[in-house]
């Protein structure tokens, strides 16, 4: 038992500081992905509820593709595809330059695009639930469409979409582990390194799983608090 505890200690002998750094990277990646995913998801939702048929089509296609592909495949497509694409662009200017795509950025894009596909569904549901009347009321008051969106619709949208977005956050938190495959030093990759050095796979993977579990549980508690807060004024939170 003592030897296991010393494996987790901080400092030169233990792996505590490496695991902590990995956890921090996991959290940073997940947090960095959300704003990108939300904004992209919102615009895709707008496309889907638009009156223009070609925008509907684009929105639906995007959702079908990114909800249907394995996250790991999306990640590889962005990572390797991004590399190929950037290399071509850069070699126009500097023929001998070597481009390398940052795995954090690739992970953020890939996970964000998947997040956006699911989030757009949540937003569409919320926009439908809010109803046309709110827009019409805005028009009747002489508000511009943009003002109606920001002042009237968005605040309601947050409350309605929050439970679904919360679930997406929990899924995202777990999906960040995939980025370890393209060598981002997240929690899982740091664990792999610890396993490689100590030959204690069961112990270290169990510790990693428990850290992920703790992150999930803390998130769930935070999300239910948020839902209560955004639900105030609407009777019971659920």
């Amino acid at each position: 038992m003592d030897s296991f505890l010393s494996l987790l200690s901080f400092g030169p002998d233990g792996w505590g500081d490496q695991l902590a750094a990995g956890t921090w990277m996991t959290i940073r990646l997940a947090v960095a992905t959300v704003p990108f995913g939300l904004v992209l998801g919102f615009f895709i939702a707008l496309a889907k509820v638009s009156e223009r048929r070609w925008l509907n089509f684009l929105g639906e296609t995007y959702t079908t593709v990114f909800r249907g592909l394995p996250e790991l495949l999306t990640l590889f497509i962005i990572y390797y595809g991004g590399q190929v694409l950037l290399q071509r662009v850069v070699s126009l200017v500097a023929p001998n330059a070597q481009v390398e795509v940052n795995s954090f950025v690739a992970g953020m894009f890939a996970l964000g695009m998947v997040f956006a596909a699911y989030a757009s569904e949540a937003f569409v549901g919320a926009i439908r639930a809010i109803g046309k009347g709110q827009f019409e009321a805005g028009d009747a008051l002489g508000m511009r469409r943009a003002t109606t969106w920001f002042v009237v619709v968005l605040p309601q949208l947050i409350r309605l979409a929050l439970p679904a977005i919360g679930n997406l956050w929990l899924v995202l938190l777990k999906d960040t582990s995939l980025v370890s495959v393209i060598a981002l030093n997240d929690l899982l990759r740091m664990t792999n390194i610890a396993v490689g050095a100590t030959k204690q796979p069961f112990f270290f993977y169990l510790v990693a799983l428990l850290i992920y579990l703790a992150l999930s549980i803390i998130s769930s508690i935070g999300l239910s608090k948020l839902e209560t807060r955004f639900g105030r004024g609407y009777g019971a939170a659920r």
Partner: peptide
């Protein structure tokens, strides 16, 4: 259910695949 739904499948896979070798 909380354990399996709250942790990444990839990490679970590593636990079984590499962890089994230890035993």
């Amino acid at each position: 259910t909380t354990f399996f739904r709250g942790t990444p499948l990839l990490a679970q896979t590593f636990l079984v695949y590499y962890g089994a070798g230890q035993f």
